[in-house]
Computed example of a mutant assay.
Amino acid sequence: MAEPSRTPPPTDAARVAAAHFRYYDLVMAAFVAILLLSNVLGAGKVARVALPGIGDWPFGAGILFFPVSYIIGDVLTEVYGYAHARRVIWVGFAATVFMAAMAWVVVALPPAPDWGNQAAYEAVFGQVPRIVFASMCAFWAGEFVNSYVLARMKVMTEGRHLWMRTIGSTIAGQGVDSLIFYPLAFLGAPGWTPHLVVVVLFTQWALKTGWEAALTPVTYLVVGWLKRVEGVDVYDRDTNFTPFRARV
């Protein structure tokens, strides 16, 4: 697949540390919105799909949302560099912590006597603490692995083969995410046998990577457009890759 055309010349990450970008904040907002949706709507539900010759196959419903956050993470790292992606990851992590705290408070509030939806509300928003904790740990580790691998591969390939970088970083990042989340959240939980945990874990890993590959043409279009309108193509040659800072 051809690389995005008419992109700006390579720019070292240190030169754009204090730059103001036209669409960076909007990309950050999209990342956080999709992250929160994936945690609210799909984190704890196991759905199923009928596969020819195999039968019903279970998968986590979060697959519909969460992989898109990795694609946006790839776009952030590819266009703006690791440091700007790192800042977005920390913003997303803080938003997830705040959402979890507010959900706990709201669920714990005594319901009005004539309001009969408390049980349903608890079922939707009252996720058990271990699932919330597992989700936060998996997101944090997986996103940083994804961004780091993509940034390092970009320098190694001198900006060629974007498809290889996005898919390769997703294999690593989603692998770490799934390996942390499913055992930590569901191993030993009611209804979750060890076999089911392993099946859903590897199914999620494969499906998320498949999503990334399937949406590669979209990633190319978005990356190419953003590089042109922002006027940058950042390379992390001398970047400090520590995840323990939010400053660009």
Rank of each mutant, 00 (worst) to 15 (best):
E143F: 08
P4R: 04
A151K: 03
V232S: 02
W57G: 03
V27N: 05
A83D: 09
I63K: 08
A83Q: 12
N117Q: 14
M153N: 02
F65Q: 09
A108D: 04
V199P: 09
A213I: 15
W211E: 05
V46H: 07
S178G: 14
K227P: 05
G210W: 12
V97Q: 06
T7G: 08
G92T: 03
A95G: 05
A119F: 08
Y148G: 01
V75R: 02
Q118L: 15
N146L: 04
E143W: 08
P194R: 04
L41W: 00
G73P: 05
K208S: 10
F139Y: 15
W90Y: 04
R247C: 10
P217D: 05
A108R: 06
M1L: 08
D114Y: 05
W90E: 01
V197M: 00
T11A: 06
Q204R: 06
M1W: 06
A134Q: 05
K45V: 11
E230W: 01
R228D: 08
Q127P: 00
L76T: 06
Y220P: 03
G188V: 03
A214G: 10
A83L: 13
A61M: 13
V155I: 15
V222N: 11
N39H: 03
T242S: 14
T193K: 02
V197L: 07
P111T: 00
S135D: 05
W104P: 01
V149C: 07
P217E: 11
V234P: 09
E3P: 04
P58R: 06
F21V: 02
P52Q: 11
L201I: 00
R87N: 13
V97E: 07
F139E: 00
E230D: 10
P243T: 07
D56F: 08
W225P: 12
R245P: 06
D177F: 13
Y82K: 03
C137Y: 13
I63P: 04
G81D: 09
A14H: 13
R130D: 00
V105F: 15
R247E: 15
V229Y: 01
G81M: 10
G173I: 12
P243L: 14
T242N: 09
I171V: 15
W90R: 01
G92Y: 04
I63H: 12
W192K: 00
G142Q: 08
F241I: 07
V234M: 08
G159K: 14
N39E: 07
A83V: 02
R15W: 12
F186D: 00
A30G: 15
L37C: 11
H20G: 12
A185T: 13
F66R: 02
G231L: 09
E212S: 12
A50Q: 09
S169T: 09
V132A: 09
W163T: 10
